[in-house]
């Protein structure tokens, strides 16, 4: 390779490497802010701020959703299957909200460790399949057929 071009190639590689390092350092310094939410285990470990606006995310624990019959109030537990956070929300939930589904709630953690949500978003997972396949999977699971694992 011509020496001038070789020099330019080195400059190009330095530009890419330099910006990669700069971005990596910035992302490392801001890592807690890049995360959209705190998982329940971080909240249980006291890593999440109390009384400040933040988000909590995880799965809605099966059997934990309690709807108030007289209002839009919903209580449920968000879990990552190693820690639980109770959540209280007053408002309309997204269509995909369900037990065993992912959610991201924004709001504040109070002194009692209850998360008072002002907004609840449903987190969709990466699985896509037709309804018939899902009902076949459910039927297989009820028959105790463990071999029929879901698509993932």
């Amino acid at each position: 390779m011509h020496p001038v071009r070789k020099q330019r190639l080195i400059v190009v590689l330095l530009i890419v490497a330099g910006s990669a390092i700069a971005v990596a350092l910035a992302a490392y310094a801001l890592r807690s802010n890049i995360n959209l939410f705190y998982p329940p285990s971080d909240i249980a470990a006291g890593k999440a701020p109390v009384g400040k606006n933040m988000r909590a995310g995880g799965m809605v624990l099966e059997g934990s959703v309690k709807r108030d019959p007289d209002s839009l109030r919903v209580d449920f537990i968000v879990t990552d299957y190693s820690a639980n956070v109770p959540v209280t929300y007053v408002g309309i939930l997204p269509d995909l909200f369900d037990e065993g589904q992912g959610v991201v709630a924004s709001g504040q953690l109070n002194e009692q460790g209850v998360f008072i949500a002002t907004e609840v978003l449903a987190k969709h997972d990466e699985n896509y399949m037709p309804p018939e396949v899902q009902s076949a999977l459910d039927a297989a699971q009820q028959n105790g057929d463990k071999a029929a694992a879901p698509l993932n």
Binding site: E126, Y128, L151, N152
Partner: peptide, 23 residues
């Protein structure tokens, strides 16, 4: 790398994709 609202990749190069073949 981070906790996000967006779901992870469905079409994967190294493992089986988590989408039904009809889709």
């Amino acid at each position: 790398w981070w906790y996000s609202l967006h779901q992870p990749a469905t079409i994967k190069l190294t493992e089986e994709s988590t989408i039904h073949p009809d889709m």
